[in-house]
């Protein structure tokens, strides 16, 4: 139990620092940044309390907002992702989720990719809609969502796979 809390705290801090120090400054093609801190929400243990996940996601988003001076957009997007997580889990992992027996370290890569993809697109769509906050710029919102999502999905899947292999 303690090691679960400990490893999640470490993951929280490391992902937050990686996000604000490195990923916020990549600016690929001028505006494409990956938002890898959502890996924390993806990998949060399934059995733990959902209320705590919501609170922790809110805090994580708030910290990212504080570092990037963006009001509350990351907090809102992270809370939405955390709330929608059971639906994403159910649609991607099916029976495994029903039995509460998902271990992200040894799931099929296919279901993992679909889980990360749906989650990332949802998170980024909310994030950029709130950031740009102007319905006339809907094309810009979709463009940013698409390109940043591709970047985030590739990085997230790579990070999850790499670090789960180590733990075995």
């Amino acid at each position: 139990m303690n090691s679960v809390i400990g490893s999640n705290i470490v993951r929280f801090v490391i992902l937050l620092l990686l996000q604000v120090v490195i990923c916020n400054n990549i600016n690929f093609f001028g505006y494409i940044n990956p938002y890898i801190y959502i890996i924390f929400i993806f990998l949060y243990p399934v059995k733990e309390d959902r209320l705590i996940l919501l609170l922790v996601s809110f805090m994580l988003g708030m910290f990212v907002d504080m570092f990037s001076d963006s009001g509350g957009v990351h907090a809102a997007a992270a809370v939405c992702l955390a709330y929608a997580r059971p639906i994403l889990l159910k649609s991607s992992f099916g029976m495994l989720y029903e039995h509460q027996s998902i271990k992200f370290t040894n799931t099929e890569v296919g279901s993992l990719i679909s889980y990360v993809t749906f989650g990332t697109v949802l998170h980024h769509l909310i994030l950029f809609s709130l950031e740009i906050f102007n319905i006339t710029d809907i094309l810009l919102i979709l463009k940013k969502t698409l390109f940043s999502s591709i970047f985030t999905i590739i990085l997230s899947v790579l990070i999850i796979i790499l670090f789960s292999r180590n733990r075995k």
Partner: peptide, 25 residues
């Protein structure tokens, strides 16, 4: 809880979009 947290975040976002100074965060 989701509704509460989401409204706080949304309020902060709207506040940062409408006023000159983003006071809180």
């Amino acid at each position: 809880l989701f509704l509460l947290l989401f409204s706080i975040a949304l309020a902060l976002t709207i506040q940062s979009h409408s006023y000159h100074r983003s006071k809180f965060i």
